[in-house]
Each structure stands twice: as structure tokens, then as C-alpha cells.
Design a protein around this nucleic acid. Structure first.
Lengths: 254, 254
DNA sequence: TAGTGGTCTAGACCACTTA
DNA sequence: AAGTGGTCTAGACCACTAG
């Protein structure tokens, strides 16, 4: 952040060159506010770049940068030769994130209880998921996450057991849930695939989660791969539906 | 897209100024490929902007643009005064979209059957969701989406019934599922809130979806608001779990 | 042809980190 | 002090659209 001093002019009207906020951010906010308030409606053309440049007395690149940001936020769409237009909202543009889950994990009142950490022989499904030969050994971990003493999420995970690797290290990296969420550690992991689906609690899950068998539950499956593109871990979180859901927003907020 | 001519040089090595791909896109791809292939590992520092500028013989702004793109894709993080670093993967960075649902809707083999479209008296829940007085009239719509003749999604929706408005128009805008997903129409809608949760099929749903009562199901609730910030429609999609799930990826792909 | 957005240059000054 | 990223300028040329 470059300069500092309070904003002096109505940000609806002008760009404050002395603000701690960069000019392009100010312009993004001005335009977004105008879209959100209905001054520019879906389908409307925004002022052209040269109009904006003159109106706010900034350079073309600064205007372009603001427009680009609005464009990849999905607020507007720029069409070469025609203009920049406000986009109607699209249901298909909605994106859900794991913020709810992350907040659960990082909350003060949240604790993780390790139920099991053992070496097991891979069954058919585990062998398939981890690209192992059935019967080979794998590390199996079960955890229970609680919030304010109430169990919230039951987690099971299979990890590659590779005696050649510093197994403790690689295990710890994947084992630390908080680390995985925040991005601490995990330097050996290249990518992950996640799936959300609906499920119902079986007996074991119902016991741990203090729910009832057959109750609706959210299931989040995860597979992580190393830089050799081989799966390193496979597991899933399960939570009673009432304890975990996912929200998303479409359209211009605020 | 500016110029046209095939890429001539190995894109791993150099930027082709005659390519149809802009220089900044080429640089983004080069760097992303190097991260994906493990040349740069999580935590590593990328070459500085001036190094990249010299290495690829492009202007500072073009390098910055590429870095910015990688940064807001979550691949790297730039720290002023220190450098640009490859980010470890974060579970919390995963985002799910409605692509699966959208493909279902837009597929050739998909058909929508309107089961009901009537004017009803708002019950307590509907009145609350639509900010109406209980007992006021609302439009109620039920649809069944099928794919290859098999029912996939059961949709119910309540719409504001406002005789002052061109009700047919506003109804049609919200009624056209395809339009909502693609962003056609919906010019009267400012924003929407969506929630994904797990549920189980009740009797009515089981009949329509040809499933069994108590079976796991995904529920997608939606509320749309007009530019006056008042809710305009509220409804939900429900689908057997095996017919609909959501996928996301973290880390660098390809 | 005039106007639009898309890309790119070759610098400048600033803020921040590290040594 | 040297090196890093962050912002911004004042243009240029290009591709595309529309009248």
C-alpha cells in the first residue's frame, strides 16, 4: 500500500489520489457500487474506457485494470469493439467454498480427538483409491472433531505407507488438519480432488456423531496427490447435515 | 485476440511474440507448468520480476500482469520486498461450482416437465422467506427435470405475486431455468443466495425421483432478490445423491 | 470511419524487506 | 543500500464492431 491519509472526497464521485487505496481499487468499488445500486442494470453498457479515463482523470491502464477485475469477478463482460456490459446474474456462476468447514476447524472451541492411527492392510476400495495392490499396507487414521464438546465431524483417512520415505514427516503433513486447511506444510502435495455428496449415517457414524442411523449427512471426500501424480492420501469427512452446509452468493453484493 | 500465426518456439523456453496468445498468458502458462511439474515447489521463490523481464524480454507491466493472475488463482503469493512464492495447497481454498448441475440442465437429453404452476396462499415458511405476510398470495411452481427419460431433479419454487408488476414477464424470467443458469434474462434480479445441504427423500420426492424414502439426497436452496433488496423467489432443487455431487480441485492442474 | 476494448512498452516513484 | 513487489503514467498499435 503506497500512500496514507484519510479519504477526503465522496468515493462515489472521485478518486482520491492520496488515499491508501490504489486508484484501480477505488474505481472497482465505485463501479461495483453503481451496479449494485441499480444505476447500471444488467445489460447496460458501462462508460467507455476513455470516458472513465477522463471522468476520473486516470491513465488508460488504470481503467483497464479496474475493468479487468470486474470482468473476472463476473460483474461485467467486456466485448471488443462494442463496450463493457453489466452481466445478468447466473445461477451457474455460483461457487461454494469450504469457509464454513474452515471456520469450524479453526474456531477456538474446536478440538480434535484422534481415535485411531494404525497400519492396516488395504482393502479393495482403498487399494483402488491409492493405486496400491490390494493387501499392501496403508496408514489408517480416524479423528473426531468437536465443537464446544459436541462432536461435529468424523474423519477417516488412508495414507500411503512408504517405508522409504520419511514416513513420520509425510504423515504429519497430511495429518495436521489445520495445516492442510491453512496451507502450512503440505509441500509434498501437488494437488487434491474433493467431492461433496449427500449420505446417511450408518451405525458407527451415528454413534460418534451422536446422531441417528439413516439421518442426512454431508460427506466430503478428498484425495491428495504428490508431485509424481500418485495418490498419497484418501479420506472423507462426514457431518450431520444440520451441522454443516455450504453457502454461495451470485450477483453483486453490498 | 491480436495477431495470428502458429506457436513456433517451445513455450517452455520462450515467449512467441507472433502467437495468437498474448505474452502475459504465455508467461502464466510457462510458470504454472513449472510449478505443476515441481520445478518450483511450494515455498520456493519465483524468479524476481526483473529476472523474468530479462529472461523473456518483455516489459515489467506484462510480467506483473502474469504474476497477478497466478496470485489470484492462488498458485503463488507475492510479498512486497521479499519475492513471489509458490503456495502450498490449501484444503480451505477449494471452491465448488454448479457446473455439474448446469451440464445436467443444458444437456441434449435433458427435458423439463412442468408439474404445477398455481397461485397459493403463503404458509409460514414461505411468508418468512419471501418477506410476505402469511396468507398472502404467491406463485408456486413444481418441475421435474429428466435425463434420458429418467427423473433427476425435482424443483419447487415460490415467486412473489405482485399484480402491479408485469407478472408474466417476471415470472418467465425466473421460470426459465436455462435462462437463470446462463444469465439470459434475470435483468430484474440483483443477487441470489444459495445453500447446499444433505437431506433425505420424503414420500412425495421419492415418487417423483423414482427413489426410496429415506434415501440420501442433495438439496440446493435458492433465494433471489430484486434491486429493491426484497426477495423475489425462493425454491429448492432436490436430487438423489447418486445423481448429483459436486467436485473441486486444489493445487495446480496439468 | 469512428469508437470500442486488448495488449504492450519503457520507464517512474513508492513501500517494504533484508543485510 | 540493494533488491523486491505495488502502482501508475502516457502513450502506442492492434482487432473488432457498428453506422
Amino acid at each position: 500500500m503506497p500512500r496514507r491519509s484519510p479519504t477526503r472526497l465522496d468515493p462515489e464521485l472521485n478518486i482520491d489520489r492520496d488515499s491508501y487505496e490504489p486508484a484501480y481499487v477505488q474505481l472497482v468499488n465505485i463501479l461495483r457500487r453503481q451496479v449494485a445500486s441499480g444505476i447500471f442494470r444488467p445489460g447496460d453498457r458501462l462508460p467507455s474506457e476513455s470516458e472513465l479515463r477522463q471522468r476520473y482523470d486516470i491513465s488508460p491502464m488504470t481503467v483497464r485494470r479496474a475493468i479487468n477485475i470486474l470482468a473476472d469477478q463476473g460483474v461485467v463482460v467486456a466485448e471488443q469493439g462494442r463496450g463493457t456490459f453489466v452481466k445478468p446474474i447466473e445461477l451457474g456462476a455460483a461457487t461454494f467454498d469450504l469457509q464454513a468447514l474452515q471456520e469450524l476447524l479453526n474456531g477456538e472451541a474446536t478440538s480434535v480427538r484422534m481415535l485411531e492411527a494404525s497400519i492396516v492392510s488395504a482393502d479393495e476400495r482403498t487399494a483402488r483409491k491409492l493405486a496400491l495392490i490390494e493387501g499392501k499396507r496403508a496408514i489408517f487414521i480416524r479423528r473426531l472433531l468437536s465443537r464446544n464438546g459436541k462432536p461435529i465431524i468424523y474423519h477417516r483417512e488412508y495414507l500411503l505407507y512408504d517405508p522409504r520415505l520419511p514416513s513420520i514427516e509425510s504423515e504429519l503433513e497430511v495429518t495436521s488438519l489445520r495445516g492442510l486447511f491453512d496451507g502450512i506444510g503440505a509441500t509434498e502435495l501437488k494437488r487434491g480432488e474433493l467431492t461433496i455428496e449427500a449420505a446417511t449415517l450408518d451405525e458407527e457414524e451415528a454413534v460418534y456423531l451422536e446422531g441417528t442411523v439413516g439421518e442426512a449427512a454431508v460427506l466430503l471426500e478428498h484425495v491428495f496427490y504428490g508431485f509424481d501424480n500418485r495418490p498419497v492420501s484418501w479420506g472423507w469427512f462426514i457431518s450431520r447435515s444440520e451441522n454443516l452446509s455450504f453457502r454461495a452468493f451470485v450477483g453483486v453484493r453490498e
